[in-house]
């Protein structure tokens, strides 16, 4: 038996020069697909940062279209390599195509101590309703804020009145209450940081987020 193997091996060896002259190209088995993470440029042209970490080590992606490959949970992620747009489309395109539009954000301002919408804010609500339409939104957040005049308790109440006032108008203009979340952050989430008891028009606001 062993002899047969030796003969076979010798026969193969004898064929080698012929092979070299006329090589039979055998396609190598395709590499086992690995998991991968790729960093991309966002809609604003900004490239952020992503860190990948597992039991084998960690790697940070910082460049546009750089990718790390990972073979296993206990194997270190590969050093980042730049990949082509075609490669990105091939591997990640199916997911990238389905990314929803970003949320739309609006800010309405109020007079000192008031929960009344001014003409400017009324006009802005038209844009809010348009954003709801184009996004088919079912999730609109309305958050009322105040400046630091008055007490935190009454500011919470004032912030809520402001937000409810906005919600009432949106409701009267056809937005379903089911799609709205109304909250107050009172004086707890100042746009412009101030000491207590400071009149600051930019803090007297209602923020509307349309998702």
């Amino acid at each position: 038996m062993r002899l047969a193997w030796i003969f076979a091996a010798a026969a193969l060896l004898a064929m080698l020069p012929a092979c070299r002259k006329n090589p039979v190209t055998r396609t190598p088995a395709p590499p086992k697909p690995e998991s991968a993470v790729v960093l991309l440029k966002d809609d604003n042209g900004h490239v952020g940062r992503v860190r990948f970490e597992n039991a084998g080590g960690s790697v940070e992606l910082t460049g546009e279209n750089t990718m790390t490959s990972i073979s296993a949970a206990d194997a270190a992620p590969a050093a980042p390599v730049a990949v082509s747009a075609d490669e990105i489309a091939r591997r990640f395109g199916a997911a990238l195509e389905g990314l929803p539009a970003p949320q739309a954000e609006f800010t309405l301002y109020f007079d000192l101590g008031s929960d009344r919408l001014n003409a400017e804010s009324e006009a802005l609500l038209t844009a809010v309703l348009q954003a709801v339409q184009t996004r088919n939104s079912t999730d609109v957040s309305i958050i009322g804020h105040t400046d630091t005049t008055d007490s935190p308790q009454s500011n919470f109440a004032l912030g809520l009145r402001r937000a409810e006032q906005v919600a009432d108008v949106l409701r009267s203009r056809g937005l379903s209450p089911e799609f709205m979340t109304v909250e107050s952050h009172g004086e707890g989430d100042l746009l412009v940081k101030t000491a207590d008891g400071v009149k600051e028009p930019r803090n007297r606001r209602v923020e509307i987020t349309v998702r």
């Binding site: 697909p33 998991s35 940062r49």
Partner: peptide, 20 residues
Amino acid sequence: ETPVGMIGLRGTKFAAALAA
């Protein structure tokens, strides 16, 4: 979190594909 490790988001746009 993925079966091969954790992706820490520092922002903003990225994609991940997991091997079958």
